[in-house]
Design a protein around this nucleic acid. Sequence first.
DNA 1: CGACACCTTGACAATCCTCAATGTTCGTGG
DNA 2: CCACGAACATTGAGGATTGTCAAGGTGTCG
Lengths: 259, 259
Amino acid sequence: MSRWHRTATGHKGGDFPMYVEPSGQDGEAEAGHDPSPCASCAVRADAFCGSLAAPALGELHRLGRKVRLKRGQALIWQGAESTLVGNVLEGVLKMSAMSRDGREQIVGLAYPADFIGRPFGKNSRQTITALSDAHLCVFSRAAFDSFATGHAGMGEALLRRALDDLDGARRWMLLLGRTSAMERVATLLLDAAERLEGAAGKTFALPFSRQQMADILGMAIETVSRTMTRLRDGGVIALPGGRQIAVRDRNALREAAGG
Amino acid sequence: MSRWHRTATGHKGGDFPMYVEPSGQDGEAEAGHDPSPCASCAVRADAFCGSLAAPALGELHRLGRKVRLKRGQALIWQGAESTLVGNVLEGVLKMSAMSRDGREQIVGLAYPADFIGRPFGKNSRQTITALSDAHLCVFSRAAFDSFATGHAGMGEALLRRALDDLDGARRWMLLLGRTSAMERVATLLLDAAERLEGAAGKTFALPFSRQQMADILGMAIETVSRTMTRLRDGGVIALPGGRQIAVRDRNALREAAGG
DNA sequence: CGACACCTTGACAATCCTCAATGTTCGTGG
DNA sequence: CCACGAACATTGAGGATTGTCAAGGTGTCG
């Protein structure tokens, strides 16, 4: 019954201790000019903190720090005390669950403006790992919890986000349970293109390896590869090499994704 | 590419308009004796409202009403304005998503004490249907939202619950993406037994049909049936007939579920 | 240029789905 | 109470998709 491939999430420079940079060190955050550095944050409009007014925002900012992760570095290990929460500023992270016998399933992706971690109480049962070099804005859970408790709007904003995540997870379940390899790959590519493609049809870098795509989609790496090849041969996408990709025929891709 | 079975969720007496019973009609809720009927609620200890103190509880109670659903009746239709939220008091419900071409995937189950519906803002994209006769305590979303906003603890309790659901959804994704038919069926049976079995080894009624199990687990009805037969032949479970089931060898079942 | 990780391709096998037929349960009405 | 029919469940045969194993190709970095 154990027919599962090890997921060999072999990352080149993986799992170094992470480099933490205290907030207010980035030049822009020095006192004086910019009392609320969050104001210039690229993801503020889309992130949970967008709902906060200036004073609360400043307070929150003082609790946070910035973290840079290199590709392959992990932020929260499965089972470990989950003491961090935060926002993704740049890059793509994966949330993965692993069963005792070593099978991995990626259970979520976090793109810029997405919230990660598990506030309030229980620990996360997921490991969070950077798929590309990433830049986060993190808070210790304890500090974040008490801040959130003290600010009425926050609970609602976080809840809204959690419920959105839940909707997303459930759509993904539909994908995992009821779709063919082609539909899965096409859906993932469509999603990635929407988030990462500069302009329609433009070439961009896929942030995942084939192995990671396989882990995300719940299939074997070879099937992913074959499916990509089929899409390329059909003129739907172009694969200039490396991890580059371009969507050539968006409608066909949408079609392949199942409507 | 369209190799999917229609899910033929044919329910015998399905989709009647639901019968709504105003709160405070149940005999026990009459004024006088029992100022807070919630106190005698079977699921209060486990439900989100368990965190509320008496006065708030009374207020909440006045907003709610009880709803009974017959097996097969739907509470919230996919795409429709989601105007209800609530708690399951008794029975089992399913949350399902359906793609345009008619494939159904059940994306969640709600057992007693579970919260259903989508408070705050956006509409649910799921349909909620009773798998067995069910008994709920529901609130209109508008009333519930304003109540929750006005009570500090509520947001946090709801968030906690949403995050738990999210964890659950993600475990389920691991199931859908990375496990064999046997593991899926065994996991579902184990879960159902834990929630519904009176005592260990006792016979109880499975609340789902084979078709529903197939929709939950993302597989074909025949595969479910064959897998159940294998479990029976292996002495792991007993199937006395009807929808009855008993777990004979819990360890073997746990083993089959993948550890 | 060589080593290494990553990706692609092929052949084969296994699981699971599809189609089809038969058996069982349950509710209804005679 | 029994007979009938409809929905539900089981079983079998065959085939399609996907996983597994294996080999070779491509790209990247020192």
